[in-house]
Amino acid sequence: MYDVVIIGAGPAGISASLYAKRANLNVLVIYNGKSNLEMTEKIDNYYGFKDGIDGKELYINGIEQAKNLGVEIKKDEVFGIQNLGNTFEIRTEKEKIETKTLIIATGNKNIRPNIKGIAEFEGKGISYCAICDGFFFKNKDIAVIGNGKYALNEAKELSHIVKNITILTNGLKAPLTEFKTNDKKIKEIKGEQTVREIEFEDGEKIEVDGIFVAIGQAGAGNFAKTLGIMQSGDYINVNDKMETNIKGIYACGNATGGLLQICKAVFEGAMAGLSAVDYIRNFDKEN
């Protein structure tokens, strides 16, 4: 069991790991995919670099710094997180990991695709959480929107409950899978009280009872929805200690919104790391 698991290896996640590790905790950072920082060509407004610094270089330096301090870092994709009461289980592509605290530092990704009808039917057949809402689609025909491993994992969860599943990639390349796939671009989601039909841009229509959205990789918004972390819009709500409404879960960096800058991510990461340290010291006393 880990003391602290941090999802995300950008400035917020790595900064959190440094403070938690320096307090001698058992720390793991899981990351996958591209960080915003990694894709930034040049950073000119961060303290201490007189000629600016390449985003990718700063990103890699951060990960190396954490490794040098003894932080364990794994490249793996997180599919879901379960609250076990006073610990958390993280399901990744490769394994299940248990931890006493969790720091969400995934950055912020829009979990809602830009398709007409999506917002209108949320909660009326459109869901972002297979574990929460799969139950309502027993023996029904459903679609999963997405084309990555996360979408396939959500489809697998649902396959035990629903009758038929179609994976809709919305114009992206269809993944290799035993599920039926459709790679046409979606024009509109239609229905009356609830979702009934998906219309593609070429005019083809299919009937569905429900749609589960799982585009790209699972991120802060997906974890918030499945765990019940309070959000304002797409951002996770935290207090000044970076605590969310769930004890033992913290969020930092772009996932919490506000100023989307490295300095803010570094500060929030440090705060989240220190808060996790405080929490663990009490946790170990009480358990």
Binding site: Q82, N83, C129, I131, C132, F135, K225, T226, L227, G228, I229, M230, N245, I246
Partner: peptide, 11 residues
């Protein structure tokens, strides 16, 4: 609500 639903526990 349902017992198996995470957000319900926070509600």
């Amino acid at each position: 609500y349902a017992d198996w639903c995470g957000p319900c526990k926070m509600m």
